[in-house]
């Protein structure tokens, strides 16, 4: 992966300052600030209900019904991958990838994107005919075909089995290396975060409580000692106390 440690490049693509979001009396994001650099892969961890999706939806401009304030700068070219693949069931796979893509060579790009996620030849399948993992790959193709500067993903692999998830990690890593979008990946899975990201954030009580640069060369080995240290540190921030387990 085009690792990008330290975030030394020019202006960040995402800039969030004093973001406040609340549902009724409950303030979910309370003065949150966050920068994401060009091409940087950021993973966001946090307890269930900590507001990860709320933040992601704010970045995706999907929260027009939520009250709040703050400064938000995001690029125009951004894509969202949801936990469900969210394919339109009445559109064939290729048409789903091409949705909203008003370019003369949309079909060509769509085919290329499907080829990239390993679904070349399935262009004319209906979404119901695909497995969960395949549907999620179509969703990835749909996001990447528009060459986003920012890719927002809310637990995109949450519904997949462990094996498929590992495959999807490899795929996502390759795709990001090629397309170089900035990524904000919301996940529950600490290992997933440490494996994929340049930087891992922990969200708690309305703000970022940990911001850890992952200084492990890729590809990363879960058994690595540094991996284990970072994992324990993150788990501690997530309120899970771990005994120092010897690396397996």
């Amino acid at each position: 992966m085009a690792s990008h440690l330290g975030g030394l490049s020019g202006a960040p693509v995402v800039r969030v300052e004093s973001l406040i979001r609340s549902f009724g009396p409950r303030t979910i994001l309370d003065g949150l600030s966050l920068d994401i650099d060009k091409g940087e892969f950021v993973a966001l961890l946090g307890r269930s209900g900590s507001g990860k999706s709320t933040l992601l939806r704010a970045l995706a401009d999907l929260d027009d019904k939520v009250s709040g304030s703050g400064r938000l700068e995001t690029p125009d070219k951004k894509s969202v991958v949801f936990q469900d693949a969210r394919l339109l069931p009445w559109k064939r796979v290729l048409e789903n990838v091409m949705l909203g893509l008003n370019l003369p060579d949309a079909a060509k790009r769509g085919r290329a994107a499907l080829e990239e996620v390993g679904l070349g030849g399935r262009e004319n399948a209906w979404p119901v005919e695909l497995s969960g993992g395949e549907q999620q790959r179509v969703a990835l193709a749909r996001s990447l075909v528009r060459d986003p500067e920012l890719l927002l993903a809310d637990e995109p692999f949450g519904a997949l089995d462990a094996l498929t998830r590992l495959r999807m990690h490899d795929l996502l890593r390759q795709l990001c290396a090629r397309h170089q979008p900035a990524v904000l990946l919301v996940t529950h899975d600490v290992d997933e975060a440490v494996t994929l990201a340049d930087r891992v954030l922990v969200l708690d009580k309305g703000g970022i409580v940990a911001d850890i640069a992952i200084d492990i060369p890729t590809p990363r080995d879960h058994g690595d000692r540094r991996f284990g240290e970072i994992r324990s540190e993150l788990l501690r921030h997530l309120g899970v106390e771990t005994k120092p387990v010897l690396p397996v």
Binding site: D61, L62, S79, V80, F82, D84, R86, L99, G100
Partner: peptide
Amino acid sequence: RYVELAQTLR
């Protein structure tokens, strides 16, 4: 959710 999708796909 499809409406949301349409929105994110501009």
